[in-house]
Design a protein around this nucleic acid. Sequence first.
DNA 1: CGTGAATGCGAGCTATTGCTCATGTTATAC
DNA 2: GTATAACATGAGCAATAGCTCGCATTCACG
Lengths: 221, 221
Amino acid sequence: MAKLKKTSANPRKAPAQDRSRATVDVILDAAARILVKGGYAAFTTNRVAETAGVSVGSLYQYFPNKESLLGELMRRHVEELERGMVAITADAAKRPLAETIRALIEDNVRAHLVDPALHQVLSEEVPRLGPLDWRIAYGSRAAMRVRAALETRRSELAVGDLDLAVYLVTGAVESAIHDAVADRPDDLRSGALTEELTRMIVGYLTGKPLSARRSLRAAAE
Amino acid sequence: MAKLKKTSANPRKAPAQDRSRATVDVILDAAARILVKGGYAAFTTNRVAETAGVSVGSLYQYFPNKESLLGELMRRHVEELERGMVAITADAAKRPLAETIRALIEDNVRAHLVDPALHQVLSEEVPRLGPLDWRIAYGSRAAMRVRAALETRRSELAVGDLDLAVYLVTGAVESAIHDAVADRPDDLRSGALTEELTRMIVGYLTGKPLSARRSLRAAAE
DNA sequence: CGTGAATGCGAGCTATTGCTCATGTTATAC
DNA sequence: GTATAACATGAGCAATAGCTCGCATTCACG
């Protein structure tokens, strides 16, 4: 294996014509398919090019190195993940806390059910890409949004250190849902996991058990 | 890179003399050091042998392939992780639920503070080793133990699906602590995270907020 | 058209890896 | 002391890997 030698920080050419934009897409599609099918071990630039039906040369015309391929794949994924969250946290001040939290969890579940296999490989098997890694960037941005949302309802909260609480809560939700994609897909789809998670989080944050949950759910719809 | 060709399921020789037992240890030590220092990318059999001060030949006398090196490293780590948990869950019937849960969390924190760097590389960067992977095996055994412990106090629980609850709770604890090793080491060491986690979990499981927590902690000591 | 730029090609270079094997050295058994 | 098994060595093989570069093809546009 030639050691990824940081090929002189090469910002490769951006596609200008339609033909090349299609090439870029076809390459990324192939990359995703390979990751899903064979994991990171199968992810070689030669194989990606072959699967995409283009030559390695073309691949390296738009991606300076193998790492950047992963980077772009991750970027696109995060974009999708963040869309919903922004909308929900923006409305936090107008709605009851429990409702916002349930909405966030539901949205997270929904996002994780889109191409779950790729999502999983990307976050479990792909080596860390340094401090610019999407997981870190996404995680901290998500935490900031949730923190801001919770702050609009500070009086309802029964936690001391809000930062710590946000850290705990976002981490728990993210990881529970993420793991459940592989381990408990039925509970994910049925909403059972959403239900329990919501109960756990709301109870923790407000200090009061969320018992009238059925009615709350009805009210939210 | 020669593709790990499952070298004919070779069970290598086990060390018989003291000299060779020392060799095995020195190899595993070097392997751990390399993983911690350079991550999985730096983990090559040649480098491990060199760092250990032995030849590759000697390495392959005791480990059939690179994978098995990781396997042994993981096995030793899990052994350490499980020791405390077994003791605590065994006593679950005799103690209040909240106390058992706090003890489990505290023990998990303690375990994660032993060689945290190695623990992290092992669980984040090392490729999955198939269905025999330690993470899966360990996770499901841990879940079984916790489930059995909770069952001895079923009447205090306010959850419907105990399996789901155990899944949620063990996952949340494990991942929160794991992430906190990297993100919030101070909260981990100060006990703040233990405190909040315990509150969250006990509240969720019993349906009652754990408010008199200070006194509970005092009683546990 | 024709010309330069954009795009595409793929053989093959260089580096490195996992692992073997022929050979040497040390311990144990008798 | 000698034979046998355990242990150790390290040059080097086979297999890839990431990536380059000289050249071919296609496009935009006058």
